[in-house]
Amino acid sequence: MGRALAVIIWLLTLASVVLFLSGWWFPTTITEHGPRVDQQFLITIIVVGIAFVAAQIGLGWMVWRYGANSQNKDERALYTHGNNRLEVLWTVITAVIFISLAVMGQRVWAQLHFSDAPADAFQARVTAQQFSWNVQYPGKDNKFGRTDPTLIKEDENNFIGLDDRDPNAKDDITATTLVLPVNRPAELILRSKDVTHSFWVPQLRFKQDLVPGMEIHVHFTPTKVGQFQLACAELCGMNHFSMKGTLVVLPQDQLNDLMNLPPTQFQPKLEELRGKYELGMIYDEKGTKIGKSY
């Protein structure tokens, strides 16, 4: 069994490597920062992949060489106190590798979370609740209307407590679909009504918690048009599995037309536009199909 086990270890290692080399990867990214996140993942996978393969080859070799049915049954094991110099060396090498990866990765992460969104960014407030997504758009005046939790009336379509007495709220649009323009920075203001949720569109290459009592800002620039599934990535209750929404990235002119409509005409027009873009496909900035997103 000893040598067979060694062979199994090597075969599993080979299968893992082949899986990655065969092109198995994330869904196509649709954001400006996405390629940098992918590059970071790739570098990390190459580094840890080399370490993984080396460790598995070594493990297999040990099983082959010293297994129960090896030819060296009478060979006696050596006792060692260890080697301090070697310990320090490989700990330092590991630390340098991981710290370098973290430093490389933090720039793109911090750019999404800590730097200001550009002044011309398209804004949308995303308010999560068990078990749905609510999106508020500021409308023509580009100002969000006031919201107040005491005004929430879910059976009257007021899921976020929008105060209709506020002049800024008159043209605000609320929907369950997140619509963003292509090639224009988008800023999301993430909030939660009840428990912690997590905003996750795999193609956007970021995942962000929505925490009750906090307004979390994040910004990015979509570069492809299409429809993409928005999922909640934080177990938020019994029906967490059903908490899904849709992100629709539209060409600039289509988005402008949509946002300039009166709130009552928003949903029918959005349905019409969604009909143009197949879920799972990606389109260029003019709306021409260019391939699959996954």
Binding site: D116, Q129, P149, I152, E154, K193, D194, P212, I216
Partner: peptide
């Protein structure tokens, strides 16, 4: 009562707000 889930008002948390 509308039976909605209780909503927590947003707080100012400078660490995660724009600065």
């Amino acid at each position: 009562e509308n039976g909605s889930l209780e909503v927590m008002p947003a707080m100012d948390l400078p660490m995660l707000m724009k600065h």
